[in-house]
């Protein structure tokens, strides 16, 4: 891992045991869905976002690691609070266990509530309604200016089919490290191999004025 350069943003993922936190990160970073062993302590991923490095910390959900989670929360610029939409208990845990932990993150840490395993949800059998999730998300982020973002910091995802996964992360990154559309294009993978002769480098001095 590159401990040499400090990441520009630290993102932490928290949530109850087996709600699918590691699967969520893996779907985003590697775009695969596979079986994961229980995370021990925490796991770490690096992601490029435009010119920035983002460190994604995936914590262990097991209760015995609660003490560590608070430690890993420190200095986090954004947090994902994940719960299993098929398991109301895991939603309760967000209130009970994880809200206090977030205290140690940065002051204006963005908290995104994410329901996982949406693919397992059979019609009409919801214990947690979208409104409830949205309400929690709004309460958690009271005092943050989210007006620039589209929608509430609440997502329902499926790591199995990839639904909404990218949106969660980009929502957070865009809040913490906003990129202009131009930058996004510049750093998108296709563009990387192309030399843009018309690209204006902001660092270079302005073109000299022609004489006479």
């Amino acid at each position: 891992m590159s401990g040499k350069r400090k990441p520009d943003l630290k993102v932490i993922i928290m949530g109850d045991f087996a709600v699918g936190k590691t699967s969520l990160v893996c779907r985003y970073i590697e775009d695969v869905f596979k079986k994961h062993d229980t995370t021990i302590g925490a796991a770490f991923f690096l992601k490029q976002w435009g010119p920035y490095n983002v460190a994604v910390w995936d914590t262990a959900g097991d209760e015995r690691y609660t003490g560590l989670s608070q430690f890993y929360c420190r200095n986090a610029g954004a947090a994902i609070l994940a719960y299993d939409v098929t398991n109301p208990q895991s939603f309760e845990s967000l209130w009970a266990r994880f809200m206090p932990l977030i205290e140690s993150a940065t002051e204006n840490c963005l908290k995104v509530v994410v329901g996982t395993k949406i693919d397992l949800l059979e019609n009409d059998k919801r214990d947690i309604t979208v409104e409830e999730g949205r309400k929690l998300a709004q309460e958690l982020n009271e005092g943050l200016d989210l007006s620039k973002l589209e929608g509430d910091p609440y997502f329902e995802t499926s790591s199995k089919n990839g639904a909404n996964v990218k949106e969660v992360f980009e929502y957070m990154f865009q809040y913490c490290l906003p990129l202009t559309g131009q930058q996004k294009q510049k750093y998108s993978s296709v563009k990387k191999d192309i030399v843009d002769l018309y690209e204006t480098d902001s660092n270079s001095p302005r073109a000299k004025k022609a004489c006479c």
Binding site: M1, A42, G67, L68, N75
Partner: peptide
Amino acid sequence: PSALGMFVTSAGISQRP
């Protein structure tokens, strides 16, 4: 806890899993 080896920097955060 649980026989984990934890890395901690002077800033009180961890930079390695």
